[in-house]
Simulated assay, not measured.
Amino acid sequence: MKWVATTPLISLDTETTSKYPDEARVIDIAAAYVTPGQPLDLRQAYVNPGVPIPPESTEVHGLTDEFIEANGKPSAEVLDLYLTEIAEAMRAGAALVVQNARYDLTVLDREARRLGIPPLTDRLGGSVRPVVDPIVLDKRLIKYRSRVSEKQGPRVLKTLADIYGVAWEDDKAHGAAYDAVITARVLWKMAGWCALPRPQLLQRQTCRSATWKKVRPEDAAWFEAVGAMSPGELHEAQVGWAAEQAEGLAVHWQSQAAEKRELAGRDDPPGDEALDADERRRVLLDESAQLEHDAAGISTEWPLAVAA
């Protein structure tokens, strides 16, 4: 991945109204243009989607209807500009960097089609490439990592920043501009790990909740292999890795759903003791149904799910 230091990068991030990409609306978008030898060019805009922002989304990014009404610009105007600039940069040789690319790029694809503006695929002749997704890459490089806490997962941007050595500020997180910059820095650090001699790489910690865990020899081989890949080769490799990872997640959620159904079938199902047995059973069955729904909705396509 020596090309990371010499290739223009566009690090993209969005904040939206939903965790489901087919229905999400963009309310904050940022693109960090990283060009070797030049200052960082960070572009950010708030977007008025014309729909209410659900409370659960506001809890994530802090953006309210009132703020977006006062500061947001029309969706079509903002997204057309950003997609135009991104497409131009990619045609000129830039690589697109997106944390959880399948989500953000699918959101932008559906938004463009909904608004009647050309999606990124059309602007780039049918294929958005090369794309680098730190989540997909990290799952391949370090296969096993525990959750940091109940609320902080093993692959979220904050965790990757901590593992790879990028400074993190909680009060700035979940803003598109901040997350876009951190994503670019994480990729730079990952590229640095790929270039380390094996003895040094094997000393790197891979899990903060178990500080004794370090890069394993079998993982080191993947760091070395990825380090030798071109942007195009890495893109193609991620297509396969992302599909495998999505299939694995679907199986995991289905297993969790089955476990909750089994618990619900007990005479005295576990749960909130303030609820009676029937209420606890309903909670478990609702959670099981949601897991089944989410598992069925997982796409194995990458870097975005193709529109139906």
Score class of each variant (00 low, 15 high):
3 W>V: 07
9 L>V: 03
15 E>V: 06
19 K>S: 12
27 I>Y: 13
29 I>W: 02
37 G>V: 11
40 L>H: 12
44 Q>Y: 02
58 T>C: 13
58 T>Q: 13
59 E>F: 00
61 H>Q: 13
66 E>Y: 14
69 E>T: 14
70 A>P: 15
71 N>T: 13
77 E>L: 12
78 V>N: 13
83 L>C: 06
84 T>F: 15
85 E>A: 14
86 I>A: 15
90 M>A: 10
90 M>L: 10
93 G>H: 04
93 G>K: 01
98 V>L: 12
100 N>I: 04
107 V>N: 07
110 R>C: 11
116 G>M: 05
117 I>V: 08
117 I>K: 15
120 L>N: 00
121 T>V: 02
134 P>E: 11
136 V>K: 05
141 L>Y: 10
142 I>E: 09
144 Y>E: 14
151 K>V: 04
152 Q>V: 07
152 Q>P: 10
152 Q>W: 05
153 G>S: 07
155 R>K: 04
156 V>L: 01
164 Y>N: 15
165 G>F: 05
168 W>G: 03
171 D>G: 05
172 K>A: 07
176 A>R: 08
178 Y>Q: 10
181 V>H: 04
181 V>T: 03
185 R>L: 00
186 V>Q: 05
187 L>W: 00
189 K>S: 15
191 A>S: 10
193 W>S: 08
199 P>R: 07
201 L>W: 01
203 Q>I: 01
204 R>K: 06
204 R>V: 12
206 T>I: 14
207 C>Y: 00
207 C>W: 05
212 W>N: 09
217 P>F: 08
226 V>N: 11
230 S>C: 14
232 G>A: 09
232 G>N: 14
235 H>D: 04
235 H>P: 13
243 A>C: 09
244 E>L: 09
245 Q>D: 11
247 E>A: 02
248 G>N: 05
251 V>H: 02
251 V>E: 04
255 S>H: 10
258 A>K: 04
259 E>G: 06
259 E>H: 07
262 E>P: 01
264 A>G: 01
265 G>H: 06
265 G>Y: 01
268 D>H: 09
279 E>S: 11
285 L>G: 00
297 G>D: 13
297 G>L: 08
308 A>R: 08
308 A>V: 03
